[in-house]
């Protein structure tokens, strides 16, 4: 997820991104930000936070747990907003989406 400093919601993005680093893919032991699973968050609706994200595979056995984690941390951050997840498969996730930090945690570099 890329941050735009001109966005009116930059403070929310930063807060959300920091919180989402607590959500770990239990299988890989790396947080979903470093894995590149998060594509964006829409705060434009005052009562909602709509998360656009993917999973490493459509049949990821940890999919429910990861989504629970996203909802839990964002509800804690934004108690006034309802959290919705928009799960997408395009663009398809691949290893190139993993950050340098994530690759280091996985022992890939």
């Amino acid at each position: 997820m890329e941050l735009s400093l001109s966005s009116p919601y930059v403070a929310e993005y930063v807060k959300a991104q920091t919180a989402l680093m607590q959500v770990i893919d239990p299988e890989l032991s790396v947080n979903i930000i470093d894995l590149g699973l998060l594509y964006g968050i829409d705060f434009s609706d005052a009562g909602k936070a709509v998360v656009t994200m993917t999973l490493s595979t459509p049949y990821c056995p940890m999919g429910d747990a990861i989504q629970s984690g996203v909802v839990n941390v964002l509800k804690a951050c934004f108690p006034d907003r309802e959290v919705e997840i928009n799960l997408v498969w395009e663009p398809e996730w691949n290893y190139d989406r993993i950050s340098e930090s994530g690759k280091a945690q996985l022992g890939l570099i």
Binding site: Q22, V23, I24, P26, P61, M62, D64, A65, I66, S68, G69, V70, V71, N72, V73, A76
Partner: peptide, 11 residues
């Protein structure tokens, strides 16, 4: 893990 912690993940 899914049974014990899925709902607690992130909390």
């Amino acid at each position: 893990w899914n049974i014990r912690y899925q709902q607690l993940h992130g909390k």
